[in-house]
């Protein structure tokens, strides 16, 4: 059975990690925001912005890491805007988030067109190259699948580990989780839930932008305005799938990427028997199924989407 043979090829598993990286960054960013009680639907726009900013920075002559850093800073600024509207002003998080997405996407396209008024084929940059980890990358199969990735992929996994540690093992993590559950309890202990929320949204949004930046600096080598293609919305769903836990978020991103990588290869195996658009649909359909199964047991942060106003109950 050719369709099953795909699973034994190391290139599939290598592709899984590569496809998963922007999702890991995005899901982690959305998760950090939501853990403190704020839904950030600006993610789709912030990822698009991050993709363009990183690419543009590198295209102007900076190195790849600077591009990634500038993208993170710009993402953080849009996070600050979302935070200002939803936290001190307490506006609807849904409406504000969608507004941020529209604003960031349009601004991205505007700046892109302003910089490159006439270009039929977008200019390219030299992207991140796979970084083989000495020793480990020589292990047959596993080496090729796991230890020959680009540097930002390792960074994404490291970010998951750091976030999980902060949430479970530090006073700051407890304060963030408590803010997402009951901000009044945080305030009663003399901490400031408003500052905590603003902080998580800025950091979360910076991570989202890095997810977008990975697309232009590693997956592809150029920018086009529709390249994020709903990955931000997938991340929002993955947070629910992960029950708001960093470890499960990694698992979810990998699972989605596996579906995606598999359907790409399946298209070649099955050939023209079935229209390829059907395959493109597979990861999304399977995501919905997984979401239904997993999220029934989820512990939703109790104060998610509830604006916090001092003195109110």
């Amino acid at each position: 059975m050719e369709a099953l043979d795909i699973f034994t090829s190391a290139s599939l598993w290598g592709a899984v990690l590569r496809i998963a990286t922007p999702l890991i960054f995005g899901t982690l960013g959305a998760l950090i925001c939501e853990r403190s009680g704020v839904l950030n639907l600006g993610i789709e726009g912030i990822m698009t912005l991050g993709a363009m900013v990183a690419w543009m920075t590198v295209y102007q002559g900076a190195d790849l890491w600077t591009g990634l850093f500038v993208a993170a800073v710009c993402g953080g600024m849009f996070g600050l805007l979302h935070a200002f509207l939803t936290v001190p002003l307490g506006l609807s998080q849904h409406v504000t988030g969608l507004g941020i997405t529209l604003f960031a996407s349009s601004l991205t396209y505007y700046i892109y067109r302003l910089a490159l008024p006439v270009s039929s084929s977008p200019p390219t940059i030299e992207p991140f190259q796979p970084l083989a980890i000495p020793g480990l990358s020589d292990i047959p199969f596993i080496g090729e699948a796991l230890f020959s990735q680009t540097a930002p992929t390792y960074l994404a996994i490291f970010a998951i580990v750091v976030t999980a540690y902060v949430f479970t093992r530090t006073p700051l993590g407890l304060a963030i989780r408590m803010t997402g559950e009951n901000p009044h309890a945080v305030e009663a202990q003399g901490l400031n839930p408003v500052r905590i929320r603003i902080g998580t949204i800025v950091v979360g949004s910076a991570l989202m932008a890095m997810g977008g930046a990975f697309l232009t600096t590693a997956t592809f080598n150029s920018f086009f305005p529709t390249m994020v293609q709903g990955r931000g919305w997938v991340c929002i769903a993955l947070v629910v799938f992960a029950s708001w836990r960093p470890g499960k978020a990694l698992l979810g991103a990998l699972l989605f990427a596996l579906f995606d990588a598999y359907q790409l290869r399946l298209q070649h195996v099955i050939d023209n028997a079935i229209p390829y658009q059907l395959f493109l649909m597979v990861p999304y359909v399977l995501s919905i199924v997984a979401l239904v199964i997993m999220s029934r047991r989820a512990r939703v942060p109790q104060a998610l989407m509830a604006p916090y106003r001092k003195g109110e109950r």
């Binding site: 093992r169 006073p171 700051l172 407890l174 559950e181 009951n182 202990q189 003399g190 942060p301 109790q302």
Partner: peptide, 27 residues
């Protein structure tokens, strides 16, 4: 009168909140 507790967190978490500096690397 209305408790300031978080149902999704453990008793110990609820009690420890705010007792340690936010900069500490380990609880």
């Amino acid at each position: 009168q209305h408790f300031t507790l978080a149902g999704n967190l453990s008793v110990l978490d609820n009690i420890m909140i705010g007792t340690e500096g936010l900069g500490h690397l380990r609880t």
